[in-house]
Structure formats: structure tokens, C-alpha cells
């Protein structure tokens, strides 16, 4: 990576937080499913993914808190921002309508997440690189898990194929936003801290296509890709996710738990 001038602390913090917001919202959604899965084995597996993601979130937010100072903690970052301050992509806030949606959402994110971490493990920022090196092993397993399941659903029976295809049709339009860099991401990339996001699009689409072929699923034609999450303009689902997640911190401000 070529190193431009190092970004200021605020930009670096924003970059780290934005990256982890995806993990936070997805982990929150998966955590909510615990106890409601198709059987115990899948319940346990999805919870493991949720716990991995929360772990990554905590590493990132703890780092961001040290950058921000002023009494910031992992929890003030996780729980006390306004909706428009969360920078996650729209995909991860989409609802868990059925197991098909859960798996497709997971797979689409996991493939991107893994490609991103592959780059970030060489980040010029030591802490980011260390977090990425630890996270990439977890995420490699997530890709494997969600890809295997996508194949099972797609290449299962008529019902599962229809459900998986419907979920894919519904969620694919959200699977491009992460390649469009924000100002913060561009600055991070220029400094060798972040990744060159547009360059991930090609390997992403190749990996997705390979799994979809095995799953006998097809990408919807003429997709109009959705975006806005990274600018803080979310879908209607986001408000409810935050209302629930933040409820304790909002109702009882400033207390220790």
C-alpha cells in the first residue's frame, strides 16, 4: 500500500467505527435469533458467528475509544449514537424474515468481510492490522458456513430453492454499497490504512458467482443497487434495531452495569 499523509485521529476513529458498525448490527440481529433456530445445532452455530462479530466490534470500538478520548468507551460508541451516526451498510439491517434471508444476508456480507480483512491485515495501522489478522480466521469460517448453507438451500428441494432465490432477489441490491468509498474510507485507503474498496468488487462477484452456481441460484437481472447506510441514511428497519439495542442506556443514562 502507498502511504499518503496519516489521517487525523478523528478520521481514523471514524474509519474504525464505520467498519465495525456492520459487525455490530449483524451481530445484534443474529443474537436475537438465539433460541429460535431450525434446530439446536444451527442455533449454536449462528450464535458462534454472532459472538465472533461482537468480539470484533469490541476490539474496534475499544481502539476507537482510545482515539476519541473524552470519556468515550466501547459502550458509548455502541449505544449512544444517533441513527444517522451509524455507518453500517443497509444489508446488515435487513430483517431476518426466514432462514433463507438469514443465510443470504450472512453470505453476502461474509464474502465482502473476508476480502476486506485480507487487505486490512496489511494495514499501515498496527492495531487495525492486528484486529484484522485475528478476525480473518473467524470470518473464513463464516464464509464457509454460510456458503455451505446457501448451497444446501439452493440445491435442496423446490421450496428451499424458491425461498433462497427470493431472499437473494431481495438482498442482492444491497450488496454493492460497500465498494463505494466514503471520504473517510478514501482518506484511510490513501494512507495505507484502509482498503481500496472498488478493487474488491471483481473478486467479490467472482466468489459469489461460484457459490451461486453450486447453489443453482441466479442473480437478479438489472439490479438497481441501494446505498446510503454509510452516509447514515438508513432503511426503516434501523430505528427499531437501535431502539431495542439502546433502550437500557437511554432509559438509565450514565449508570454502570
Amino acid at each position: 500500500m502507498t502511504a499518503a499523509a496519516a489521517p487525523d485521529t478523528r478520521t481514523l476513529a471514524d474509519f474504525v467505527i464505520g467498519m465495525a458498525d456492520n459487525d455490530l448490527i449483524l451481530a445484534q440481529q443474529l443474537g436475537k435469533l438465539c433460541g429460535h433456530g431450525p434446530n439446536l445445532e444451527t442455533d449454536i452455530a449462528l450464535t458462534n458467528i454472532s459472538l465472533d462479530l461482537f468480539g470484533q466490534v469490541r476490539s474496534c470500538f475499544q481502539y476507537a475509544a482510545t482515539l476519541l478520548g473524552n470519556g468515550a468507551t466501547e459502550d458509548t460508541i455502541a449505544f449512544l449514537r444517533k441513527e444517522h451516526e451509524y455507518r453500517n451498510v443497509l444489508l446488515v439491517e435487513q430483517p431476518s424474515l426466514d432462514f433463507g434471508h438469514i443465510i443470504v444476508r450472512q453470505f453476502l456480507y461474509d464474502v465482502f468481510h473476508h476480502l476486506l480483512l485480507e487487505r486490512l491485515q496489511f494495514s499501515a495501522d498496527e492495531t487495525i492490522a492486528a484486529i484484522a489478522r485475528k478476525s480473518i480466521k473467524e470470518t473464513a469460517y463464516h464464509v464457509r458456513f454460510s456458503a455451505d448453507w446457501l448451497v444446501r438451500l439452493g440445491d435442496g428441494n423446490d421450496e428451499s430453492r424458491a425461498r433462497a432465490q427470493a431472499a437473494l432477489d431481495h438482498l442482492w441490491p444491497y450488496a454493492d454499497e460497500w465498494f463505494l468509498p466514503t471520504a473517510v474510507e478514501s482518506a484511510a485507503a490513501a494512507a495505507g490504512i484502509g482498503a481500496d474498496l472498488p478493487s474488491l468488487r471483481e473478486p467479490y462477484q467472482r466468489k459469489v458467482a461460484a457459490v451461486l452456481r453450486e447453489a443453482t441460484l441466479e442473480l437478479p437481472a438489472d439490479t438497481h443497487f441501494r446505498k446510503g447506510g454509510k452516509q447514515g441514511i438508513h432503511t426503516e428497519h434501523m430505528g427499531y434495531i437501535l431502539a431495542e439495542m439502546q433502550s437500557m442506556q437511554r432509559t438509565y443514562p450514565g449508570m454502570q452495569w
Binding site: E41, N48, D148, R152
Partner: peptide, 20 residues
């Protein structure tokens, strides 16, 4: 023991259930 539809899944489930 555990339940799984195929060998690959059995391995993954075993990892998730028994090596946490």
C-alpha cells in the same frame, strides 16, 4: 453426538457444539 444432514455439516456442527 449430534445431528447433521451430511458429513460436512456434521464436522461444522461438531466444531460449533463441542469445541467452543
Amino acid at each position: 453426538s449430534l445431528h447433521a444432514a451430511d458429513a460436512k455439516m456434521a464436522l461444522e456442527n461438531a466444531r460449533d457444539v463441542y469445541t467452543r
